[in-house]
């Protein structure tokens, strides 16, 4: 088995802050790998270390067969990076951006011109190739950033939140292209995202990063199987539920699905049923139904991070809007 990316006991400290703690992961060649995690989990720090932009405090990093800090020129020519903020040259046209990037990677003129035309076509930017990027929408800039990361035909493509804050159309175009790059061209893709659905639809394997630690790793199916069905229970009451604080003492996480319906996460749910019955009696409620639920990747995320994905996504969207401004 050949690894495109291998990380061993990676730790990163910023002063007293521990951004990454003993991270271990392996990504096979040709794999579509997703790194899921909430804001501040360390996703961007990890991608910056893998791409040689930030040095780790300790640990081993191998990308495309080399260490990005010991053999930077060799390793950097083998991957492309699409950062969270589309860092394109706004005073240049799309074509000029691609030509400049091609020159940085020593791509011969005829090859870079041919490849640039293909990429502009695939990414739906051909008609705007001579327009200054200043006039581009956020989605168009992101697509151009992807084209720039692919101009030298890299083995590995790193993408940091590629669809964050984009409209549905741009999101679908980008997801389609990423799938095609992986399936048809065999490129290894390492993607960070906070969109559960994106990771579920695109990735072969997923790792969940929380507070600098990998808390779970595996295929989507493996991760779902890691949570027993009995760990997630949905309870419906006959009337609106007043407050969840009492139940939260007994469970890892309680989410209000409707005003009279809740979902509980706990490894000891059978023991908690008594608490639920007590809760209903004290609040004058009647339990209409209790169902175990097939876990989704979202449930896995909530189980391992203790966070509500809706709130996470909302936070990420606000952050993305702020940073693009």
């Amino acid at each position: 088995m050949t690894f495109a990316i291998k990380v061993n006991d990676l730790t990163k400290r910023y002063g007293r802050v521990l951004a990454l703690k003993n991270v271990r992961l392996e990504v096979e060649e040709g794999e579509f790998f997703g790194l899921l995690g909430p804001n501040g989990a360390g996703k961007t720090t990890l991608i910056r270390i893998l791409t040689g932009l930030t040095a780790p405090t300790s640990g081993e990093v191998i990308v495309a067969g080399g260490n990005p800090f010991e053999e930077p020129v060799k390793v950097k020519s083998r991957f492309g990076l699409v950062p969270e903020i589309s860092n394109v040259y706004v005073d240049f046209t799309a074509w000029e951006n691609l030509m400049f990037t091609g020159r940085l990677y020593s791509v011969p003129r005829d090859v870079r011109e041919k490849r640039a035309m293909e990429l502009l076509e695939i990414l739906g930017l051909k008609e705007r190739r001579d327009s200054p990027v200043r006039q581009f929408s956020k989605g168009m800039r992101r697509r151009l950033a992807i084209a720039m990361a692919l101009i030298h035909d890299p083995q590995i493509l790193f993408l940091d939140e590629p669809t964050s804050g984009l409209d549905v159309q741009s999101t679908n175009v980008i997801r389609g292209i990423l799938r095609r790059l992986n399936e048809e061209e065999g490129k290894t893709i390492f993607l960070t995202t906070h969109y559960i659905e994106e990771a579920e639809r695109l990735c072969h394997r997923v790792a969940i990063l929380n507070r600098g630690e990998i808390v779970a790793q595996g295929t989507v199916e493996e991760l779902k199987a890691s949570i027993k069905m009995s760990e997630i229970v949905e309870v419906t009451f006959n009337a609106p539920i007043p407050s969840l604080s009492e139940l939260e003492k007994h469970c890892d996480k309680v989410i209000r699905l409707r005003e009279n319906k809740i979902r509980l996460y706990s490894p000891h749910i059978s023991r908690n049923l008594e608490a639920i019955t007590d809760f209903a009696r004290r609040n004058g409620l009647e339990i209409l139904s209790v169902n175990t639920v097939n876990p989704t990747l979202e449930d896995v995320f909530i189980r391992y991070t203790g966070l509500d994905i809706v709130a996470v996504e909302r936070m990420e969207q606000i952050r993305a809007k702020g940073s693009e401004r």
Binding site: T51, G52, L53, P72, V73, K74, V75, K76, S77, L81, P83, I85, N87, V88, Y89, V90, T101, L104, Y105, S106, M148
Partner: peptide, 13 residues
């Protein structure tokens, strides 16, 4: 504009 990262991630000393 974070374009410095673009230069830093390129294979150039």
């Amino acid at each position: 504009s974070r374009t410095m990262d673009r230069l830093l991630v390129a294979p150039i000393h």
